[in-house]
Nucleic acid binder design. Sequence first.
DNA 1: AAACAAACCGAAAAGGCTTTCTGAAAGCTA
DNA 2: TAGCTTTCAGAAAGCCTTTTCGGTTTGTTT
Lengths: 342, 342
Amino acid sequence: MAQATGPSRSQPATLSDVARLAGVSVATASKALNGRSQVRAETRQRVVDAAERLSFRPNQLARGLLAGRTGTVGLLTSDLEGRFSIPILMGAEDAFGAGEVAVFLCDARGDAIREQHHVRALLGRRVDGLIVVGSRTDPRPSLGRELPVPVVYAYAPSDDPEDLSIVPDSVDAGRIAVTHLLACGRTRIAHITGDPGYLAARERSEGALAALADAGLTPVEEPRFGAWSEGWGRAATALLLDRHADVDAVLCGNDQIARGVMDVLRERGRRVPEDVSVMGFDDWNVLTSGSRPPLTSVDLNLEQVGRAAAHALFSAIGGGRRSGIEALPCRVVIRGSTAPLS
Amino acid sequence: MAQATGPSRSQPATLSDVARLAGVSVATASKALNGRSQVRAETRQRVVDAAERLSFRPNQLARGLLAGRTGTVGLLTSDLEGRFSIPILMGAEDAFGAGEVAVFLCDARGDAIREQHHVRALLGRRVDGLIVVGSRTDPRPSLGRELPVPVVYAYAPSDDPEDLSIVPDSVDAGRIAVTHLLACGRTRIAHITGDPGYLAARERSEGALAALADAGLTPVEEPRFGAWSEGWGRAATALLLDRHADVDAVLCGNDQIARGVMDVLRERGRRVPEDVSVMGFDDWNVLTSGSRPPLTSVDLNLEQVGRAAAHALFSAIGGGRRSGIEALPCRVVIRGSTAPLS
DNA sequence: AAACAAACCGAAAAGGCTTTCTGAAAGCTA
DNA sequence: TAGCTTTCAGAAAGCCTTTTCGGTTTGTTT
């Protein structure tokens, strides 16, 4: 059988194929399939059957061309491997995927040139809107006000206050973390955190100190800024214990630092959580669940950030216009590493 | 100025806008912009200038409608949060993004119904092909042979040998891991691994045992299957040391298990790597870099899997037809947790 | 039976682009 | 100058769908 086209090469059926098979015009076929009211029930059924037989799927390109809306959005992330892009991306995909919207994924690899390239390509495909996902909470350059479609920034806010940005509330995150430690009866609290070049580090710290101040307390020492790593957590803990042996809680800038802190506490004979409570930020499961004991952490609710961004984009496409930075609350996930003083 | 449309609402320029501004017909404008040879240089320049002035981007919908190819592909992942989808997705995005292809991302959340729904939606958008990314290496149900576009499976192979699947070579991964340990002079090697319900666990094990057998060795005890967690790593190590105190290397089924193993070795007074070498699989940076010492691990080269899948899809779209399971090599990333016996 | 309304179906245009084909102008040869 | 070839520009068709509008059929009313 020297057949030119195998089964999997055959062109998808078009509406006129369906119409021909059903013995009606394309106009009627279209109306029948789209539930328009100007077709007899019997005719509609013939069309539906024909469409079924040919496994007809309406060509969204043609539809989009006509409607002026494509039902697609661009998701522009700056680093896919980053820990933070993914949950946001999931939330957005989730919010969109339920409906009729498809998502173009683009990874700019943190390169502004490549980002610009992707924006152009997406606009060429006539996306209805864009979500820009950053990898850290520091403000990033705006894509500009002249874009023909709405844009929502997620996690990393735009530096233009006219843009709409959805971010986790880092200050509040620090605050609720300390509130939890206070609720556990801890009063001699240390704070070991990451790179001070990150806004997230500074804001979490700010919220933590504010919550302490509200309780009439100060940390046992100045917050220790360093790196976002287990190694820094270990090193800082050694220093901390040498100077402030009476510490009863350590608030860590992220889960990796917390892992390092807990390791050294254990080695120095401190029991967690009995002697010292420890908590982190980010609630990264691979770190929180494997530790001894499992780590209490502040979840940034990133999926919710993604969903909120998607919904905001929806309403912006519909004409609703918001701007500024909207900060979403975080939540403490309590595990074994924090407990009331007995 | 009661202007109806703000700057960001204006419709994007069309080719006929460009043509009008340049004082030519749309046909000429099209030819000018696409480098066709039937336009005078001077005319072409006028068109190019006009396009520039209007920041014209050709509508890819219209183009795709005409060409029968859209320059889009669907990336169907079964769990975005999964550790393995992301690098593959990056590799694919990378391979595509360089050119003229845009990627629709869909997450089926491991649900077959939702997957089917996404496939339909993607076909409606006339994607040129599909990549299906799984979350584990066990075979998964094929999408079927009757799809109008080519499909490539990545990481999780299709259960239909007529489909093309790109996977990491798990057997070889086990083999090269043991080869590395042997090269370090280790001979009393234990194997602690994860859930035996996972093909990856069984195949890595198989490769490891084969390499040992090739060297005329057997492991110090039967491989211990359990869970993919630090907790299991710790528990299994305790059992191991009780029975085989003379072990000089532990090959772990993944990096999390390896972390648990190393923790208990340290607590039992074994030095890593001097007394016992430890290695894992997956090369998950957050785990390998934070441990003491940094963990040697087998990298599955997942980005390469993604790139290979993208390239395979390209050539399939072009008509090239391959099938079966293609296994790509892995590589050992040597860090501080393995070293030659001194 | 005539007149009218209602129900149903189809022709055609639109959306933005590419491509083919036809036509006009320019340049060349004899 | 007549006749030829090149070179360049435009008209129109086509891709697939939706929607408007006009036309035909059927049913209802007097």
